[in-house]
Design a protein around this nucleic acid. Sequence first.
DNA 1: TTGACTCCCATAAAATCCCATGATAACCCA
DNA 2: TGGGTTATCATGGGATTTTATGGGAGTCAA
Lengths: 159, 159
Amino acid sequence: MKIFLSNTENKIDSKGRVSVPSQFRSVLEYQGFAGVYLYPSFTSQSIDGGGQNLIKQISESVERMQLFAEETDALTTALFSETYQLNYDQDGRISLPENLIEHANLKDKVTFAGLGQKFQMWQPSAFQDFKNKARIKALENRDLIGPSLNFTNDQKEEK
Amino acid sequence: MKIFLSNTENKIDSKGRVSVPSQFRSVLEYQGFAGVYLYPSFTSQSIDGGGQNLIKQISESVERMQLFAEETDALTTALFSETYQLNYDQDGRISLPENLIEHANLKDKVTFAGLGQKFQMWQPSAFQDFKNKARIKALENRDLIGPSLNFTNDQKEEK
DNA sequence: TTGACTCCCATAAAATCCCATGATAACCCA
DNA sequence: TGGGTTATCATGGGATTTTATGGGAGTCAA
């Protein structure tokens, strides 16, 4: 199983290039092509990214929605018109569109954060904040998440 | 059934490498790949670890939860952005990310402790404390576990 | 020509490979 | 059963490779 994991902070150089972390590249290439799809997150000041799987998932869920709703054109437009397909060069670097840089308020550093099926790109300190809050939230709801977080072999029967 | 059992204390060398105990490696390889997944424990100053089974369980429980997009991002961030996939080298050693070392307050030794489906990595003396407390708790609740454990207080009290 | 985008090479740091050692555990066989 | 031989394992360290990053030079289009 190949998913996006861990987080790394990379530099944006004077030409505007960033290295996609090599572990992420290997996930992307496993999905079938040497590049990324990026779009501004709907819910946070970050960039959503992924490979072919992510795009496929999104198109499918848009299709499903269109069976029920009629005004999904706006959503579809919003999504796809701001989605960029960037192939990275042989050193694994991409250069980000101005659009996305603004949305995530990036300066000269980016944090790549793995979220499983996709990843996000954050202004580093903004990511720290988000992550800390997310961790607290997850801890509060860990019984919803399931036993995997804190079970040992026999603890399952307690409470 | 292959599960993580017993505990061993290993050294972190000058390059930051630690040997994954060979018994653990055989469990991991049995699960399908020569590496570990590690993340900071949500509930203690230790590192949780496991193989593909552990990650699969977590991913599946995330997929089962249908949340608002905002919540999903927070949850997956908490779970995946601090999870590291480390392939060990041919001598069975990994080098721990700074992140995890800090969380578990590791210096030059680690205790690997088997917990069945997963394992934990502790700063050795912190593990001793934890184990003593865990033992008391286990005795208090031994009726929950089932009839098979008719141990008395002094059995298994070796070393 | 300028600017945006590659390609290509250089470098330093980090990760990994490869081999050596000593300790311990497992094995064997008279 | 005891003593010696083999494996296995954790650990040390040198050599090699990978990775992120910087910058020069070539390509293409407006």
